[in-house]
Simulated assay, not measured.
Amino acid sequence: MTTAAERASDQYRPYPLGDGLILRRARAADVPAIVELVAPMVDARILVPKERVDYFEGIHEFWLVLELQDDGSEVLAGCAACHLIWSDVAEVRTIATSPAYRGRGIGRTLVEQVLADARVLGAKRVFCLTFETDFFSSLGFEVIEGTPVAPEVYVELLHSRDEGTAEFLDLARVKPNTLGNSRMLRTL
């Protein structure tokens, strides 16, 4: 029989991807590297800005692709998070790949892992807000208009303080952050 500590530790084990890359859950110590990776995309208004505390609070939602170095250290190649918005809707958020690692399938690997997490959580649909419509279309996402939830769910979601939920609802208060982005949805 496994112990609670063994079960907790096991969910953070690395999964080899080949070419010295691994996929693993993020830990608190990874927050500075995540913040550094996403900073240029926040500055370019590709990603919505977040406070450092938001990364710590949501670290359990993140997956990372890292390159193992000869000295045992890790270099962050990419990240993505799966955030549950409602009982049947999740969001792919904070997806970023380092320019040095683009074109190696890292973004695809991360989104596929987020989709798998969403299924385990019980989500039937996964939302993203993106400029990369071709990339997300290749993964089965479609551009949406309006709000794809029932009116009673919409009213409940209005109580959320989460910016991703506001983006999903296409609320006017988030428009300055989302100009030019497309709201996309994939049914699982």
Rank of each mutant, 00 (worst) to 15 (best):
D30T: 04
P32Q: 12
Q69C: 13
A80F: 02
R25F: 02
D70S: 08
C82I: 00
R93L: 11
A33E: 10
L84K: 14
L47H: 04
E51Q: 14
H83L: 00
V42L: 11
F56E: 12
F56S: 07
G18D: 11
V89A: 05
A28S: 05
P49E: 09
R27N: 04
R52A: 04
V48W: 13
R25H: 06
A39Y: 11
A80P: 01
L21M: 10
A44C: 04
V65Q: 10
G20N: 12
R25G: 01
E74F: 05
A77V: 06
G20C: 03
V89P: 00
G72Q: 08
L68V: 09
D70M: 09
A26Q: 08
G72E: 13
V65L: 06
E67C: 06
G58H: 14
W63N: 07
L66G: 03
A81Q: 08
L21P: 00
E57H: 12
L23V: 02
D30P: 01
R52W: 01
Y55Q: 05
R24D: 06
F56L: 11
V31I: 07
S87G: 08
R25K: 12
G78V: 11
C79S: 13
G72W: 08
L76S: 06
L37P: 04
V38C: 06
L21S: 02
A80C: 03
D88N: 09
R45S: 15
A90Y: 01
H83F: 01
V35Y: 10
Y55E: 05
R45M: 15
I34C: 07
D70W: 10
A28Y: 06
D19W: 01
A81S: 12
V89Q: 03
H83D: 01
R27E: 09
H60W: 03
V53S: 15
D71E: 13
V75I: 14
D71P: 09
C82H: 00
I46L: 08
E61T: 00
E57G: 05
G72P: 01
P40M: 15
E74Q: 14
L76Q: 02
W63Y: 12
I22G: 04
E51S: 08
A39H: 13
Q69Y: 10
